[in-house]
């Protein structure tokens, strides 16, 4: 058992896979001796060497594309994109090439690669270094999307992603990097597409993702004192989407809230809510409420950023109001 930070768990998870499988390589800007901009790969270069850990130029199309070519021909690359906003400069490679190639080639080609990116807001970085892009990725057929909220899930989902023969985006949330968690000894492997109930409850189901999970859990604590019992589900993956766990929960609680860091329109919660409406409407006793950031870019000033992000107090307030 080791206590590690979420930040350290990224390198911990990668090391587990680099150790296990010689076809796994790590590639990205500053991932080598520099230990990554977020210090998430410290020690990997020293441990695995320049033959396994590759620094790249600032050239996302080149190194994401190269990772795809390597994945098509026998390697299992882990790409570190750094800020998730940078998907914007390699979206062709991700959405047009990586996602579609297996399907378009009639299954001839597979692309077993992982793209890890530092996702989300809270660090006062402004609109181009703070986005939550999971809903972009979810919208493209052919991409799997994992969004861990704890160190042990970073390790487990990273392992599942590396071992998966499909392309997987692992979006770690940089607001969580200083948080800590226990990692059991031995090999840690999670399953893609399996949500987890983080807190059982009876009054309402709250579905959250990434950094919104601890916020939803804090909101549940706030409301507990008022006699409201929230069930908090950590979705963990958007593709595959664990609809069953959500519907089972809603069948017990009769109410549904989503807590999403993404801007309002077309966030993952909209898809989830539409599925619940189609398949479990008669379980629902009151309005379904999506708690998201407003549909604006993330502002930089602390007071403004804090005002747009769903935080525990605001989440509790919205749920309290909706439950009456």
């Amino acid at each position: 058992m080791a206590e590690v930070t979420y930040r350290e768990s990224i390198g911990y998870g990668m090391a587990q896979e680099l150790d296990r499988d010689p076809t796994v390589v790590l590639v990205g800007e500053d991932v080598g001796a520099a230990g990554h901009v977020f210090k998430s790969t410290v020690g990997l270069f020293e441990r695995f060497g320049p033959g396994r850990v590759f620094d790249t130029p600032i050239s996302e199309q080149a190194f994401v594309g190269a990772a795809m070519g390597a994945a098509m021909t026998g390697l299992r690359p882990i790409v570190m994109l750094m800020y998730a906003d940078f998907f914007g400069v390699c979206w062709d490679t991700v959405a047009n090439e990586i996602a579609k190639t297996r399907y378009m080639t009639g299954g001839q080609v597979e692309v077993p690669l992982v793209i890890q990116a530092d996702n989300g807001a809270g660090l006062r970085m402004g609109a181009q270094h703070s986005q939550s892009v999971e809903s972009w990725a979810m919208a493209v057929p052919g991409l799997k999307v994992a969004v861990p909220s704890t160190p042990v899930d970073v390790v487990g989902l990273m392992a599942a992603a590396v071992r998966c023969d499909d392309p997987v985006l692992v979006l770690t949330h940089k607001y969580l990097y200083a948080t800590k968690g226990e990692i059991p000894d031995g090999e840690i492997v999670a399953e893609l597409g399996r949500a987890v109930v983080r807190r059982p409850g009876t009054s309402a189901t709250v579905v959250a993702l990434g950094a919104m999970v601890p916020e939803a859990l804090r909101a549940a604590e706030l409301l507990e004192a008022e006699g409201v019992s929230l069930e908090v589900i950590d979705l963990r993956c958007l593709v595959p989407l664990d609809v069953s766990t959500v519907i089972e929960s809603v069948a017990r609680t009769s109410r549904l809230f989503t807590v999403e860091e993404n801007p309002r329109l077309c966030g993952w919660g909209a898809e989830l809510v539409s599925i619940v409406a189609e398949e479990a409407l008669w379980s629902i006793d009151g309005p379904i409420v999506r708690i998201t950031t407003p549909h604006v870019p993330v502002p930089a000033a602390p007071v403004l950023e804090d005002a747009v992000l769903p935080r525990a107090a605001r989440i509790a307030e919205r749920i309290r109001a909706a439950l009456g």
Binding site: V64, L75, T93
Partner: peptide
């Protein structure tokens, strides 16, 4: 290993296949 319909997309991919061959 494929025909690519977005201009330029396959040049990095081809580099990656070469990287893999080298590896």
């Amino acid at each position: 290993y494929g025909s690519y319909a977005i201009i330029g997309a396959h040049l990095p991919i081809a580099a990656g296949a070469a990287w893999s061959a080298l590896y």
